[in-house]
Design a protein around this nucleic acid. Structure first.
Lengths: 224, 224
DNA sequence: ACCTGAACACCGTTCAAGT
DNA sequence: ACCTGAACACCGTTCAAGT
């Protein structure tokens, strides 16, 4: 994998890809806040200047790392022969949900723009599958971007939650505490929230995400 | 408004609310990146320690500022006598969309948790309106949170776009450039994106948001 | 072309001291 | 209780110098 081209170069030559891969790992380990150039140069056994030779700055590096996460998830997707468009759309969205859930720092940076080729490819897939639907063509753009935004928005929200979790406290514990706080609110001003507080306790973000997608797909079908 | 209690105190006494208000203004002016304690203490004519007396740290301050934005938008809402639940739901969501669009730094920080009382109140309103719908009660929780997440997610995405805009370049210009880049992609690998590129050029984020909401509401009705 | 590492400017936070 | 402002630790970025 590591090629030694040139003489004064290090044996395991640095490259944009090596830098980005290290960034993804460190972001996974320390989050966006804890991800520093100090950590990065230590892991890569190099100086700050070396990193800046391969990427413009930290912002670009995080962007590249985000796009890589999406690219890897897309590459891992297995085809589903015989499945209809809606089924494949659900699989695609769930796969991306899991990837963005795992790399919890990434979602807020996902933008469907030419600066992120893999995010672009993701929008393309969503759009193609929407186009296979019975939905009239003039609604394809709005439907595809809405679903794309829903995916990214929900995962970004979930990751905001994940950031709050202190080490030592489990996610379920925290949800339980929050549910208790909801239940303890004044039912006069919070009739709805107090009523559904219990559902928050034993709810799964992932299931909730699918439910939202299904409601959306129902809406599309109703437009048939 | 400004009370002089105590002797050694400044005439225009600091308070949590004054600090948060100044934070909102500075965040509007400089974005989250440009918002520093140096700027804040200059505007408030005080030292860093004074701010830390009223808020725990910068994170809490941004959170308080975010919740204030939501609170102000909720307070500005006018009742719509005679309108049905769906209409009022759309009004509510659009009002919040506009508020989060104006304060472009806020959306990524919105979380429906007890730490953000006004965000909590927003979820309550969404949920109450959903509950007025014909939707069966067991779906209320999922539907309300999905809509809430869609609102926050979309506005967070839009704000990510807004951050990219360099001063001097208008938003329409930038959209046009991006649309051109979409159109220039290889139609073989990007059949969908190249096809809808033109729609990106003359699309409105706000209209697209409503379209998404409507598709969602259609889904709810289909479940009747 | 690619890498090193010291130097710079800046930023969030703390804290001893004041009223 | 509330405020001041200097001091500290840290961080992203630059750059002259090396191969």
């Amino acid at each position: 994998m590591s090629q030694t081209r040139g003489r004064g170069r290090r044996a395991d030559a640095l490259s944009k890809d090596v830098v980005v891969r290290a960034a993804v790992d460190l972001l996974d380990e320390h989050g966006e806040r804890g991800f520093t150039f100090k950590l990065l140069t230590e892991r890569l056994q190099t100086g700050a200047g070396a990193v800046y030779w391969h990427v413009a700055n930290k912002d670009e590096l995080v962007l590249l790392a985000t796009d890589k996460v999406i690219g890897d998830a897309l590459a891992a997707l297995r085809p589903e022969p015989g499945a209809d468009a809606e089924t494949r759309l659900r699989t695609l969205l769930l796969t991306m949900y899991d990837a963005l859930d795992q790399h919890f720092w990434a979602a807020p940076h996902v933008v469907a723009g030419s600066a992120m080729p893999n995010a672009m490819l993701l929008l393309e897939r969503v759009g193609s599958l929407i186009a296979e639907t019975a939905l009239p063509a003039r609604r394809h753009f709005a439907a595809a971007t809405a679903l794309f935004l829903y995916l990214v928005g929900v995962t970004a929200q979930d990751s905001a939650h994940a950031k709050t979790v202190e080490p030592g406290v489990s996610r379920d514990e925290l949800l339980g505490q929050e549910a208790a706080r909801w239940a303890a609110l004044d039912p006069a001003t919070f009739p709805f929230v107090t009523r559904v507080a219990a559902e928050l306790g034993d709810h799964s973000d992932r299931d909730q995400f699918i439910t939202g997608v299904d409601l959306f797909l129902d809406g599309l079908r109703a437009h048939g």
